[in-house]
């Protein structure tokens, strides 16, 4: 059986941990899932994949975990009851201010020392991917800051404080009004696999994962800029 709720009400509570890049999609899925299953109360906690994994390792009562990369997922597998399934793919993109005032056309332009470039820190997945992309392209960038999560990178560019950043394509979609993107060629790009897993076995947990994998989930993911497996 899935965990009974702690609050004493009739609703069954389902605790979902999701990478922060999934925020918009999972907010929508939560609403639609709850409409479909009125007896289940979905609570989604967003954060950097690593810190979420850390919380699961520390014994957080998580039912479902959706990570932004496979490596982080691997850390919690011995605690998970289910098998991980890749449900979405994301790729990196260069974001610049709307209208691209600095006329950036590719990764090589980010080496200009007059530009303020921000990246995610290597210790979070988006940062590790960005480092990998830059290495593949043979480009040496000196960023002004290594942000602790990828959304902060997008935020700094949309505030106009940074000229460019490397983020997930989904982050660009979410901030489309303030940003322009410059695509990174496939040969240099990294495709991030997003796996989802049932951590604590239960009917509701399995239903939620199925829901994400089914067409409502796929539509929402595609809409947010994810690629589908």
């Amino acid at each position: 059986m899935a965990s009974a709720c702690g609050g004493g009400g009739d609703d069954e509570q389902l605790l979902v941990f999701a990478a922060s890049s999934l925020t918009d999609v999972f907010d929508r899925l939560e609403t639609e899932f709850e409409a479909l299953h009125p007896a289940i109360d979905v609570v989604v906690s967003y954060g950097g994949s690593s810190s979420l994994a850390g919380q699961i390792e520390q014994g957080a009562p998580t039912d479902v975990f959706a990570s932004a990369d496979l490596a982080t997922m691997a850390r919690v597998l011995d605690q998970a009851d289910g098998e991980p399934v890749v449900f979405a793919r994301n790729r990196l993109t260069i974001v610049v201010e709307f209208g691209n005032p600095e006329a950036i056309s590719g990764l090589i332009d980010l080496t200009d020392s007059n530009l303020i470039v921000v990246l995610a820190d290597r210790e979070v997945p988006a940062g590790a991917y960005a480092a990998e992309v830059l290495e593949r392209a043979g480009v040496d960038v000196e960023p002004a800051s290594y942000e602790s999560n990828v959304r902060a990178v997008a935020a700094k560019v949309s505030l106009g404080e940074a000229d460019a950043g490397i983020v997930y394509r989904t982050d660009f979609t979410a901030n489309g009004d303030d940003l322009d993107q410059i695509a990174i060629p496939d040969a240099e790009n990294v495709i991030a696999d997003y796996p989802i897993v049932v951590v604590r076995e239960g009917d509701a947990a399995q239903r939620f994962v199925d829901f994400v994998l089914a067409h409502t989930g796929r539509a929402a993911l595609a809409n947010a800029g994810f690629e589908l497996p």
């Binding site: 921000v118 820190d121 960023p143 002004a144 800051s145 290594y146 942000e147 602790s148 902060a152 700094k156």
Partner: peptide, 9 residues
């Protein structure tokens, strides 16, 4: 600090 100054070693 992390918001305004960023985070560079």
């Amino acid at each position: 600090t992390i918001t305004f100054a960023g985070s560079l070693p």
